[in-house]
Write a protein that binds this DNA or RNA. Structure first.
Lengths: 248, 248
DNA sequence: TTAAACTATTTGTCAATACAATCGCACGAT
DNA sequence: ATCGTGCGATTGTATTGACAAATAGTTTAA
């Protein structure tokens, strides 16, 4: 609709951050801050490119990023609009701890188990292990304030098994893995539900058999090697998965 | 690694299907058929473009599609590889009926409720309704063979409320909506768990209070207008959500 | 009056090119 | 033997240019 050139004033044209990314971030910010309310029509790509003194493909790529993530909708002959309906953060390859920290939920972690074990069959398959070298098996209770929210069970491959229980209480697992140089590029996960075990019930302060939300996830690095295998149980009153889907 | 030029023989250069899309589909097919096993290195973009007699941006866009959907991994200086680990179909803006049909699960539908109602508050909000015009409220039981799998409750906005119970038993809701010209571009959904109500328990053949997996979804069309609002309960022994996440 | 045809606008697709950044590896210096 | 250094290979970013296709609105014709 209008011109928002001011939004794009100080683009770093020679910095390490790609131009298309800088633009995408600013538009995203403008949408989330309410400066661009739902339904707003963006300037057309040609004009935008002229205003920003950039090429059309660069502008187009920035817009594409936001279309793919569900913030914008493009229609040929019409233009580009901010999506109606409040769109929330999608499911990302992020850690529960990061999510809770970002939302100021005051998260903490209690390590319940920390041992090296010979991997059971399902873990061998999930991590695609070649032999029976012991792997690190951990079980953690995640809380927000004093309220339990999830019981997290994880297996780590031998080369990433030198993590201490103390480290796990002070930092998130993904933080630690990243610090060790693991990349975490692709994850496969399954979300389901089942009745709580007695152990889960005790930690959650609920009777055994009450419903829990479950998520099992295997994370792979750049080279396709498994980095982590996790079986998580969430207290459904406290947590659920929210996501935005876009049809392309 | 090798040359797969044969894969790309008869590209329709002047048809209505974009070239990058044709290429992406063929690579996808080659991966799923096992012709390109996990870890296989694709030819580099420049060579691929030469072989196909296309520009590099076009080839690159085809590859980009598959990277975004988690089938390929690209690394600068290294090349493009087929992702390790069997990657499954991600959560898509698809209907349960389509999924079950594709997997030969012999699905069927029983319409339990079909009525016009003045929309309750949460529905007004979800569908972003301006007045209290009655909306269609339906409740369906979805089965595979003779086994119940889900209880589906939906609300449709007034302009899409002329759908009969008979139509719903023979076709999927999304099929019907599409036939009415609705587009369904973006969806926002939440996956959680809770205890089954008495009604759910009866339909599922389980005691009330046993765990159910829940999904609430609002679907929007091109213009950002809400097309459908659904509250679904799944029998967790029969169904779960599987998805692949890619970090970009 | 109504329907068809045209037009302006805007995104979609594709090409050809240039240079930058990163990675693995071989080679060489210490 | 080990640690850098440099080089080739490959993807990442960005520009410019051209034409196609879809949409909404306007004008024209029946």
């Amino acid at each position: 609709m209008e011109s928002f050139q001011s939004l794009f004033d100080d683009l770093e044209r020679s910095g390490p951050v790609p131009l298309y990314f800088q633009i995408a971030r600013r538009i995203e910010g403008a949408i989330e801050s309410g400066m661009l309310p739902p339904g707003t029509k963006l300037d057309n790509e040609v004009k935008l490119a002229e205003d920003l003194k950039l090429s059309r493909p660069t502008v187009r790529r920035a817009i594409q990023e936001l279309v793919t993530s569900g913030l914008l909708v493009r229609r040929r002959g019409i233009g580009t609009q901010v999506v109606h309906g409040k769109i929330s953060r999608k499911v990302e390859l992020s850690s529960l701890l990061d999510d809770l920290t970002r939302d100021n939920m005051n998260p903490s972690t209690v390590v319940l188990l920390h041992e090296l074990v010979v991997p059971p069959g399902d873990v061998v398959e999930a991590l695609d292990l070649q032999d029976s070298t012991p792997v690190l098996h951990i079980k953690r209770l995640r809380l927000t304030g004093n309220d339990p929210i999830a019981l997290l069970e994880n297996y780590l491959p031998p080369e990433l098994s030198d993590i201490s229980a103390e480290q796990l209480e002070s930092q998130g697992l993904y933080q630690l893995l990243r610090a060790k140089g693991a990349t975490m590029r692709v994850a496969k996960q399954r979300i389901g539900a089942r009745a709580a075990t007695r152990e889960e019930g005790e930690h959650f302060g609920r009777p055994a058999g009450s419903p829990v939300l479950t998520m099992t996830r295997t994370v792979y690095d750049n080279g396709g090697r498994a980095v982590e295998f996790g079986v998580h149980a969430y207290l459904p009153e406290m947590y659920s998965f929210e996501m935005t889907l876009v049809d392309r």
